[in-house]
């Protein structure tokens, strides 16, 4: 095997792991290189998606804390506060939480049928769409009364985060007021 052939083989090995096995075989057999033609669809190789440094779940909870103070209220002990005090604070937090969730997910009920009204599922049943209770038997369509209209997201626009791995778990920064 000449130098050029060797170099070519090396380059091919570098970019085609499948060839390595063939090359090993060739060396073992001391003979010719068998190259199996691979399907064209495999080339070029797709670039693997960048692994996000931070989970969207952290970004969502950070937004709920930033805009609605949700973490502060759920972590605070309620002992010693009157219902009126808790209610006053909760009202604000709930309103702002609702605004964030609606903006990011565009919440909508799964059905416009009102609670308590009659409802019939389609023939093609999707278990993710319905939670059947009571006397469940037989095949779809199922007929019953709506206990809850369900919810669905019409979008999922969680903020994008571009920080370093070290701070990926920070939900809310320390707030520091510099006094001159």
């Amino acid at each position: 095997m000449g130098l050029i052939t060797a170099t070519k083989a090396f380059c091919k090995l570098l970019f085609n792991p499948q060839l390595c096995d063939s090359f090993d075989e060739m060396i073992a057999s001391g003979g010719t290189l068998k190259i199996e033609s691979k399907p064209a669809a495999e080339s070029p190789k797709p670039i693997p998606p960048e692994i996000p440094v931070r989970s969207d779940a952290i970004s969502l909870i950070a937004a709920l804390q930033r805009e609605a103070r949700l973490l502060d209220i759920v972590t605070e002990s309620l002992d010693g506060y009157s219902d009126a005090q808790i209610g006053a604070a909760a009202k604000e937090v709930l309103r702002d939480t609702g605004a964030v969730i609606d903006r990011m997910f565009g919440l909508q009920p799964l059905t416009t049928v009102e609670d308590g009204a009659h409802f019939e599922t389609p023939d093609k049943f999707d278990a993710a769409m319905y939670r059947l209770t009571g006397n469940v038997s037989g095949e779809a369509p199922f007929r019953g009364t709506v206990n809850h209209h369900g919810w669905q997201a019409t979008k999922c626009d969680v903020p994008q985060w571009n920080g370093e791995k070290e701070s990926a778990l920070v939900i809310a920064p320390i707030e520091l007021e510099i006094k001159s």
Binding site: D72, I73, E76, Y81, Q85, I86, A89
Partner: peptide, 13 residues
């Protein structure tokens, strides 16, 4: 209602 500034939210609302 104005929420408390620090992490103790309900108490200073």
């Amino acid at each position: 209602t104005v929420l408390g500034r620090g992490s103790k939210l309900i108490g200073s609302t």
